[in-house]
Design a protein around this nucleic acid. Structure first.
Length: 255
DNA sequence: ATGGTTGCGAAGCAA
């Protein structure tokens, strides 16, 4: 079973690239983030034509997450518990091919110490609580998405250049570690321990071609699922060419 | 490597 995650930065703008990618990468499940599309106007038919069922959670303008699957899509749950993340549209889950799959878009945080940064840390804490309430680490669980955190210094291009900015601070990394401590492992890292295998590059200043990026898009797997991981890849080709997202998709094959 | 680009939506913000 091939599981993928991709921050598409507007599904409306990216639909041709997503369709192309589904055809050649052939994931069984694709989690998307920053779809920026309302549930009512989600391109369900276009994805159905490629053999994928869809479920989404979005308000149409900001954020938005989706899961598309060709191995079943059941028990869809949107947001955290009632009253939390009602406007954010940053998390949803579905059961696909026997795996409880989550698509998450962690808040960016903007500036270290700002209210948005504190909200990011609170959101990550809520994600840990949500997993405790709604899933079991002994089952087949995948938490996929744009975490807006580079797990360690292998995942950034230069420690000094980024000092003082978000995505690399200890509180963010500890919050991610607390989520992993629930019972998840970084699937991509199981199969690749090299540095500078980035998943996101700023559109500006030719950063992609200068190899100035971060690895912030992660596929976290429960242990039983992680044990079966056989192949993982960041598809940098999807970051090239006409109208790319600023993120590349990440995929992993599990049994 | 502090200067840039893209998306949304129609100016300026978020990333």
């Amino acid at each position: 079973m091939r599981i993928a995650t991709w921050n598409v930065n507007s599904l409306n703008a990216r639909l041709p690239r997503v369709e192309e990618w589904l055809e050649y990468a052939a994931p069984d499940v694709l989690c998307m983030q920053e779809t920026k599309v309302a549930e009512a106007s989600f391109p369900t038919m276009a994805l159905s034509a490629l053999g994928y069922e869809s479920a989404s959670h979005g308000d149409g303008r900001w954020n938005g997450v989706a899961i598309v699957s060709r191995v079943g899509l059941d028990d869809v749950a949107r947001g955290f518990e009632p009253g939390v993340d009602e406007q954010g549209c940053r998390i949803m889950a579905a059961t696909c091919g026997g795996v409880r799959v989550h698509s998450v878009y962690v808040p960016n945080g903007r500036v270290v110490g700002s209210e948005h940064y504190l909200a990011k840390l609170a959101w990550l804490d809520e994600l840990r609580s949500h997993l405790e309430r709604s899933a079991s680490p002994s089952e087949r669980v995948a938490v996929c998405g744009d975490f807006n955190i580079a797990p360690d210094d292998r995942d950034i291009y230069d420690r000094q250049a980024l000092e003082g900015s978000t995505h690399i601070t200890e509180p963010e990394r500890k919050a991610l570690a607390a989520i992993e401590d629930w019972g998840l492992v970084d699937g991509f890292r199981l199969l690749h321990d090299e540095d500078e295998l980035f998943t996101w590059w700023d559109y500006r200043a030719g950063n992609f071609h200068k190899h100035l990026g971060m690895r912030i898009d992660l596929i976290l797997l429960s242990r039983s699922l992680a044990e079966t991981a056989s192949f993982a890849l960041v598809d940098r080709n999807a970051r090239k060419g006409k109208q790319p997202s600023d993120h590349a998709p990440v995929l992993i094959d599990v049994a």
